[in-house]
C-alpha cells in the first residue's frame, strides 16, 4: 500500500490537468441545478406538502449516476492499456492492486466532490426560506451518505468494465448497461413482484428503496454491508482482470 498516495495524487491531477474533470462537474451541476430549480418551483406552486425540497432532490440521484459514473470510469484503465502506459506503471515496483485501489479512490473523490458542490443549495434554501422549509440537517447528511455509499459501488463496477477493454467507448457502454441493469431492472423486478418473497429480495437490493431510507435519516447497516462487499468484489475482479495479462 506504500504507493497508493503517489498513485492517487496522479489520478486526481489527471482529472484536472485535462478538461475531463471540469466537464463532468459542469455537466453534473447543470443537470442538478435545473432539477433543483424545478423541484423548488413545483413545491412553491403546490403549497405546503409533506415532501421536502432535499427529498425531491435526492430522489433524482440515479440520473447523473447512470451517465456520469461511466464517464468518469471509462478511461481509468482502458486508456492506460491503449496508450501502453500500463506497461510502464506495472514494471515499476507497484502491485496491480495498488493501481486499482488508487484509481477507485480517485474516482470516488471526484464523485464526492461534485456532489459536495450541491451543498450550496442548502445554503440557498436556508437563506430564502426564512425558516419555513424544513431543513433538518440529519436526513440531509444521511442522504448524502447514501449517495456516496451507492456511488462508490457503481464506480467500482465502472472501473471493472474499464479494465476489460482498451476502448473507452466500449468501457462506457458496458458500464452504462451494467449500471442500468442494477438501478432500473431491480426496481422493475421489485415493482412487478411486490408482496411476494421475491419482492422482498428486490426491495432490499433496489437502490431507490435504499435511497428512500437514507434520505429519511434511516441508516440501515444492511445496505452498507451490501455495498462494501459489492465494492470489494468488484475491485477484486478488476485486479484479476488487470493481472490476466499474466495468464493469457
Amino acid at each position: 500500500m506504500r504507493n497508493v498516495p503517489a498513485l492517487l495524487r496522479r489520478e486526481l491531477n489527471a482529472y484536472f490537468a485535462s478538461v475531463l474533470g471540469y466537464i463532468v462537474i459542469m455537466f453534473f451541476l447543470v443537470v442538478m441545478g435545473v432539477s433543483f430549480v424545478s423541484i423548488v418551483g413545483e413545491l412553491l406552486s403546490r403549497g405546503s406538502t409533506q415532501l421536502t425540497v432535499m427529498e425531491g432532490f435526492f430522489s433524482w440521484f440515479w440520473l447523473p449516476s447512470l451517465f456520469l459514473v461511466p464517464a468518469i470510469t471509462m478511461r481509468l484503465l482502458a486508456e492506460e492499456k491503449r496508450a501502453g502506459t500500463l506497461e510502464m506503471l506495472m514494471t515499476a515496483p507497484v502491485t496491480d492492486f495498488e493501481v486499482v485501489l488508487a484509481k477507485w479512490l480517485g474516482a470516488v473523490a471526484l464523485y464526492t466532490l461534485m456532489w459536495a458542490a450541491t451543498g450550496f443549495y442548502i445554503v440557498i434554501l436556508r437563506h430564502f426560506s426564512g425558516g419555513q422549509t424544513a431543513l433538518d440537517l440529519g436526513p440531509i447528511f444521511s442522504g448524502y451518505l447514501g449517495i456516496v455509499v451507492i456511488g462508490q459501488f457503481l464506480i467500482a463496477v465502472g472501473l471493472m468494465t474499464s479494465a476489460m477493454t482498451r476502448n473507452q467507448v466500449t468501457a462506457f457502454l458496458i458500464a452504462f448497461a451494467l449500471l442500468f441493469l442494477y438501478l432500473i431492472a431491480i426496481w422493475f423486478g421489485y415493482y412487478f413482484t411486490r408482496g411476494t418473497a421475491a419482492g422482498k429480495v428486490f426491495e432490499f437490493l433496489s437502490a431507490f428503496e435504499q435511497m428512500n431510507d437514507f434520505q429519511r435519516g434511516v441508516v440501515d447497516l444492511r445496505p452498507l454491508v451490501l455495498y462494501a462487499s459489492g465494492t470489494v468484489l468488484a475491485l477484486f475482479v478488476t485486479t484479476r482482470v488487470v493481472e490476466s495479462r499474466k495468464w493469457r
Partner: peptide
C-alpha cells in the same frame, strides 16, 4: 518500453517526481 509510453498530460519534472516515488 517499446514506443516509450508516458503520461502526456504531466510536466517533465512532475512525471519524474511521480516515478521516483513509485520507485521508492
Amino acid at each position: 518500453p517499446e514506443n516509450n509510453p508516458l503520461y502526456v498530460d504531466m510536466r517533465v519534472s512532475e512525471y519524474l517526481k511521480f516515478r521516483s516515488k513509485l520507485k521508492g
